[in-house]
Computed example of a mutant assay.
Amino acid sequence: MAAPSRTRLNSGLLHAMRLFVAVVDARGFTAAARQSNLTPPQVSRMIAELELRLGTKLLHRNARSVTLTAAGEQYLRKCRTILELVEEAEGEARDTVVRPAGTLRVSSMTSLGRHYVQPVIVEYAQRYPGVKVEYLTRQYPPDILAEGIDSSLFFASDLTASSLVGRKVAGARALLCASPDYLAQHGTPTRPEDLLAHSCIKLTSVPARYWELTEGVSTVSVPVRSVLDCDTPDAVLLAALAGLGIGLFPSWVVIDSLRSGRLVPVLPRWRTPEVGVYLLIPSRRLLPAKTRAWIDLITSRLPFALARDERIATQLAVSQSGASAD
């Protein structure tokens, strides 16, 4: 038989969790009580019963504020996840038969969007004619809460926007390319360190002085001399085609140029480390049907398209450079 302290809150455990989160977010019992239409003593008693149930202290209390204990910090993270999942489950149960409707605001980085997101938007619009789609391009993660954006796709080594919900849906690596005319005039690098003697065309999102390249287990950080900084891969492509220098490109940007021979691979066995493609949403709580439908569609299309083009670009680079190119 369960101990009384374990069974005491079984019927109101979610309520106690919500109050605990409210106390932390409001930084005090009084504000949390006001938000919950309770009295501070009622909230205090509920938190005390929760601590009794768990057998550990969750909060340090003083006259001015409350702070989390180590156990409280860990419990808070779990509480937030559990409460979000409960609300999501209830929302999905209520909205199961609801068709997507309203306005869907989607954003993406320009080049990624042009190659991959826009075709999926067309498919989405055809499937759900009751939804108006607004498509925005951003080179950096937008403030999706302030701008009312339902979903955003962007590149990042890791997800640091802790106030938002992100899901890694794919990965991408960049390869080095240059025009044949540039290499004929300036020579072809045979090792990463040779880039020091070359003109390079850089993305402004890449750290100012260094290119990080990897070949299996070997990774090097090479300082490069930038002759032009661009904020989109497509702009880097135009500069490289004009013979201004060596550029780093996502696979989808250079496939056509590699096929035509207007660009050739440089150090084809060296690539950048993988960068994640993240799908960002304001919250996983109570997602409307329009957003769930978009997430399902884009995550069913984007990873496979990126993997396909990564494979094609790699095959083209290896076949054009030969086994001993580097």
Rank of each mutant, 00 (worst) to 15 (best):
E73G: 00
Q74E: 01
Q74V: 00
R77N: 01
C79P: 00
C79Y: 00
R80H: 03
R80M: 01
R80F: 00
T81M: 07
I82M: 07
I82Q: 03
E84N: 08
E84I: 10
E84C: 04
E84H: 09
L85Y: 05
E87L: 13
E87A: 15
E88W: 11
A89Q: 13
E90P: 11
E90K: 14
E90Y: 15
E90I: 11
G91S: 13
G91F: 15
G91C: 13
E92I: 12
E92H: 12
E92A: 14
A93P: 12
A93C: 13
R94V: 14
D95L: 13
D95R: 15
T96I: 14
A101N: 14
G102I: 07
R105I: 13
V106T: 06
V106G: 02
S108Q: 04
S108D: 10
S111Q: 01
S111W: 00
S111L: 01
L112W: 01
G113Y: 07
R114I: 09
H115M: 07
Y116V: 08
V117S: 07
V117I: 13
Q118P: 01
P119K: 00
P119H: 06
P119M: 03
P119Y: 01
V120I: 09
I121Q: 06
I121Y: 09
I121L: 11
V122I: 10
Y124D: 00
Y124I: 01
Y124E: 02
A125W: 04
A125I: 06
A125Y: 05
A125E: 13
R127H: 10
R127P: 02
Y128T: 04
Y128H: 15
P129Y: 05
P129E: 06
G130F: 03
G130E: 09
V131C: 01
V133N: 05
E134L: 12
Y135E: 12
Y135R: 09
Y135P: 11
L136E: 15
L136W: 14
T137V: 15
T137Y: 08
R138L: 07
R138P: 00
Y140W: 15
P141N: 10
P141E: 13
D143C: 02
A146P: 00
A146M: 02
E147Y: 03
E147K: 07
G148C: 04
G148I: 04
S151C: 13
S151D: 11
S151K: 01
S151Y: 07
S152W: 05
L153I: 12
F154D: 12
F155S: 10
A156I: 03
S157H: 14
S157E: 14
D158K: 11
D158Q: 09
T160I: 04
T160G: 14
A161R: 11
A161S: 07
A161Y: 09
A161K: 05
A161C: 00
S162K: 09
S162G: 02
L164F: 03
L164E: 04
L164S: 02
V165L: 05
V165C: 03
